[in-house]
Design a protein around this nucleic acid. Structure first.
Length: 394
DNA sequence: ATGTCC
């Protein structure tokens, strides 16, 4: 701890060293959000960047009420890591890149029975959004094949059953149109005012929210299975972690509601913090200091990080300005390959530029800020092999 | 972020 934990105000802290680039607007949004009624504490992560009104890459702890607008439309968005049976040594990039031609369409009849049984098992009763299941979506969502590049903690890797011989698959997606519809309905009735505990609409929102979280998990599972089928491999999920949600949490003896907006939980075991498509991702183990709960330093660390971590490298440039900044220097063809030797499949021109590695911070700085803050230790570094965004859309 | 905006 120390150097990479900044106190912004009494309520607001930021996990970032002084030389980590954070946009001023994002800090302003962080402070503004801390002034909402019932807000107890706000913690910015080292990938903090501006959003529409509220910043992304932050955790917000309230008492007595929740703010659905803080969670946003992509309820349940998160990262799932699958180990495939495919061998890294046997990867042929040209061949691999050709296997994903129909991967964006709604799942066909051959999937219907698994969709029905999975929905029942997860108590998902909502109808009307099944065509989104198994689809990645836009924005920063992706499916990426990766190889374990460097190992720092072999026993942790063993615990997860991960081997560097096997190709890994990281899926980043959420609840698609379902989460969007839940937010739209909430805003129509309550604007950005939030909901008080005890209100009928509070219960109603939380129940829909929780279902959207399960829907998002199922979506990632179906995306993974679909990509596995496309490469004629099977696989097993080693983790699935949501970074957009609100849930009940006791923080330093206080019962309340923890909102995470692009903030990875540090209380759910191992997590993957992805870099941009041209950078490494990091498998990390959250650290819990083995001191008594009464220890002031521990309480302070909990207050300043709110059981949360970065959810990625963090945008350096705003969406939409990237084509202008990169267009002169890079042709579209230049962006289908990365400096780490990986391939990119992205048929949408704006997305190709918006999600370019240059638009993101270096993931290593985000990781080292959290290491310095005493929040994580790095287990392994994952190298991108092929990143799938979308086939069409140009 | 969004079966994405005409």
């Amino acid at each position: 701890m120390g150097k990479s934990v900044q106190k912004i105000t009494d309520k607001v802290s930021l996990i970032a060293s002084a030389d980590t680039w954070i946009e001023g607007l994002a800090i302003q949004q962080l402070i503004k959000t801390s002034e909402l009624n019932g807000m107890q504490r706000v913690a910015g992560m080292p990938d903090l960047h501006p959003g529409r009104g509220y910043p992304i890459g932050a955790a917000f702890f309230t008492t007595n009420k929740i703010y659905p607008a803080l969670v946003g439309n992509d309820i349940g968005c998160g990262m799932a890591l699958w180990q495939t049976t495919a061998k890294v040594a046997k990867v042929n990039l040209d061949k691999l890149a050709k296997k994903f031609t129909h991967i964006e369409l709604p799942l066909d009849e051959s999937w219907f029975s698994i969709i029905e049984s999975s929905k029942a098992a997860k108590n998902i009763t909502i109808k009307g959004y099944d065509s989104a299941l198994g689809t990645i979506g836009g924005g920063n969502h992706f499916a990426e094949f990766q190889a374990i590049d460097e190992i720092y903690n072999q026993s942790a890797l063993d615990e997860l059953g991960l081997s560097r011989k096997h190709l890994q698959l990281l899926v980043h997606s959420g609840s698609r149109g379902l989460g969007q519809s839940i937010l739209v309905e909430h805003i129509a009735g309550h604007n950005h005012n939030g909901l008080c505990e005890g209100d009928a609409d509070f219960k109603d929102y939380m129940s829909k929210h929780d279902e959207a979280v399960r829907f998002a998990e199922l979506n990632r599972e179906l995306i993974a299975k679909r990509f596995l089928e496309a490469i004629r491999a099977s696989g097993e999920r080693s983790l699935d972690i949501n970074h957009n949600l609100v849930s009940a949490k006791n923080i330093n003896g206080c019962d309340g509601w923890l909102h995470r907006k692009g903030a990875t939980p540090s209380d759910k075991g191992y997590v993957v913090i992805p870099g941009s498509r041209g950078d490494y991702s990091y498998l990390v183990k959250p650290v819990f200091t083995a001191l008594s709960d009464n220890d002031l330093a521990v309480q302070e660390s909990i207050n300043s990080s709110l059981f949360s971590l970065a959810h990625g490298a963090g945008r350096k440039w705003q969406r939409g300005e990237c084509h202008g900044r990169l267009g002169h220097k890079y042709k579209r063809e230049d962006l289908y390959r990365t400096a780490l030797g990986s391939r990119v499949i992205c048929g949408n021109k704006e997305l190709l530029y918006d999600e370019a590695p240059q638009a993101y911070k270096k993931c290593e700085t985000v990781i080292s800020d959290m290491v310095d803050a005493g929040l994580i230790e790095v287990v392994a570094k994952l190298r991108p092999v092929l990143t799938f965004k979308t086939n069409g859309g140009c």
